[in-house]
Nucleic acid binder design. Structure first.
Lengths: 248, 248
DNA sequence: TTCTAATGGACTGGGAATGGTTCAAATTGG
DNA sequence: CCAATTTGAACCATTCCCAGTCCATTAGAA
């Protein structure tokens, strides 16, 4: 086999040089579904917007209505669209840019309630699963927070968020890390700026730093119960601060 | 099944490329297989994309259909493609850049750990904040779950997810609802199908239904402590089931 | 209100494309 | 010469796509 078959070797070589293997198969319901999915994801069709009628889509894609319906069925299965008889097919997916809406609709108290749910267990998982490398990163993040001037609240907020994300990373739980990234986004949303100015007195910052340090030490010492207790106290204080600020 | 979770995927890809010692051998099924393999690995044919039909490939490579079929057989043996009669040949290999899905990187146990963090507090918030309308919807979702046949696990899973989302809605906390939507997506991901078949015996389904009903009653009665206890027991059972299934 | 048009949902029959299989002839290499 | 591989062709079962048709629902016009 290594030897060429003499007379048509040139033809074979030509085929190899043509090596672009690209009559890439296209067409079919899968292809249409993919195109529509991309259009929805990148915002061509916005949230709650109506898609063209099935018959129009069929004509546009040069496919039969059955094929378009199959494509839409796939999108519906992926919860990207909903279909209403007599009305049309509507986008029911919120793109990431529209997800900021969650931050708009979430109150500081609601955020704290979520954190009270998540962070204690997070502390437990972190003490169980954190690697030495995780602990190093957490220590660096802590140092960065403590290095912040009491004046520069912007920097404090940023490095505080980084510390909490490093805290989440310690759990080694991909889903937990992803969820906390989302929580952190809400946390650092512009809405909280004023509230933070009310709450974040230099004294408060010192307290927070102490609590961060205590949490770090507890995780290092693999002391789960202590870590959970620290987080809970930290959040309870934050909650009462919020309520106090709201009533003042 | 080659289980390479991320870290050294490029090494694996290199090994796959090196698998054929004579990639430039003219003619023969090995050559075609090599070219197609490279096309798949470098993303020319993406995950789940359809390859050209065997007859088209044969014409393109100037080979007979039988030879192309042999090449495809080698790719199928290497788990790079799957073939379906009447449908086509599809890439079933995910390149390392396509495996960034959280659901793919989260194990059943990790999912349960997150749920143990979130759902008890969710139960508490639900009993505090659920409106009558929320309770009605939760009741409907519960009825839908209970109406599922013990045979149809697909339907059970779907309505179970709907029930849990209605449960989250009861908290009236936008952030919590959004986080749980994400958790539910991971929960209903295809990865769990086999695990579910192991775990979801008819007896198990009955138990789950009883626990769902008990949770519903507790929330209706505004009995927070009971609701939290029920959720925790529910999840502890789920966790031990998972561990048991993993060890069986 | 009533009527009309438009929409998604469901179904059918037929045709085309696809991978699976088999077999005999041709080619290749020892 | 023989043995193995490749080739070409035909046929099969399956799946998908298409072109309809009819229906229930919805929204809007008369």
């Amino acid at each position: 086999m290594p030897e060429d078959k003499g007379q048509d070797a040139t033809a074979v070589e030509q085929a190899l040089l043509d090596a672009v293997p690209l009559p890439s198969a296209s067409g079919g319901s899968a292809s249409i579904a993919s195109q529509l999915r991309r259009a929805i994801l990148d915002g061509t069709y916005a949230y709650r917007e109506r898609l063209p009628a099935e018959r129009d889509l069929a004509q546009h894609y040069g496919a039969s209505r059955s094929t378009v319906r199959e494509a839409l069925r796939q999108l519906e299965e992926g919860r990207l669209v909903t279909r209403r008889v007599g009305s049309g097919t509507f986008v029911c997916y919120r793109s990431s840019s529209e997800t900021d809406d969650v931050a708009e609709r979430t109150s500081p108290l609601e955020l704290t309630e979520v954190r009270i749910a998540v962070e204690p267990q997070m502390a437990r998982l972190a003490t169980l699963h954190a690697t030495q490398r995780d602990l190093d990163r957490l220590g660096e993040a802590l140092a960065a927070v403590e290095a912040c001037s009491n004046r520069d609240r912007e920097a404090f907020t940023r490095s505080d968020a980084a510390f909490h994300q490093a805290f989440a990373d310690c759990t080694r739980n991909p889903l937990m890390i992803d969820l906390y990234r989302q929580i952190n986004e809400v946390r650092s949303h512009a809405q909280w700026a004023r509230m933070r100015d009310k709450v974040l007195s230099p004294d408060r910052q010192r307290d927070y730093n102490d609590q961060h340090r205590a949490l770090y030490d507890a995780i290092r010492a693999r002391d789960a119960e202590n870590a959970v207790r620290i987080v809970l106290e930290h959040l309870e204080i934050a909650r009462s601060d919020l309520i106090g600020a709201g009533r003042s």
